[in-house]
Amino acid sequence: MIDTATKALLRTVLDEVCEAVPRCEIGARTRVASKLLETASRGDISADRLKLAARNALSEVPTM
């Protein structure tokens, strides 16, 4: 289970990495959030690792 401090960190990283992604781009934001949760659930909760995982997930989002 993810504690409150980690949840706050995940939210911060999501907002930071997706800053330029419009809120209506739900698919992209969901992909990043999913990757963040996956990374954190493995116990990898350093801010740098989470940001790297989030940026990688964002770069893999298909564009039209």
Rank of each mutant, 00 (worst) to 15 (best):
M64S: 08
V61E: 09
I26C: 09
D44F: 12
E38I: 01
R23V: 13
T12S: 11
N56T: 04
T39R: 10
D3L: 04
S34D: 08
A20L: 06
A5M: 10
L37C: 02
T63V: 14
R29N: 10
A5L: 14
E25C: 12
A33C: 11
R23T: 02
P22R: 07
A20E: 07
R42A: 15
A54L: 05
A28G: 02
A53Q: 00
V21S: 14
T4H: 04
C24D: 15
D15M: 05
D44R: 13
A20P: 05
R42M: 08
R11M: 07
E60N: 08
R23L: 14
V13Y: 10
M1D: 13
V21K: 10
G43K: 04
L58R: 03
R23D: 11
E16P: 02
A5V: 15
A20N: 09
L14K: 00
G43C: 09
D44S: 11
L50R: 08
V17D: 01
T4F: 04
G43N: 12
S41E: 15
T12G: 04
S41G: 06
D15F: 14
A57N: 05
L9G: 08
E38C: 13
L14T: 12
T39I: 05
A47E: 14
V13I: 12
G27Q: 09
S46L: 08
K51G: 07
D44K: 07
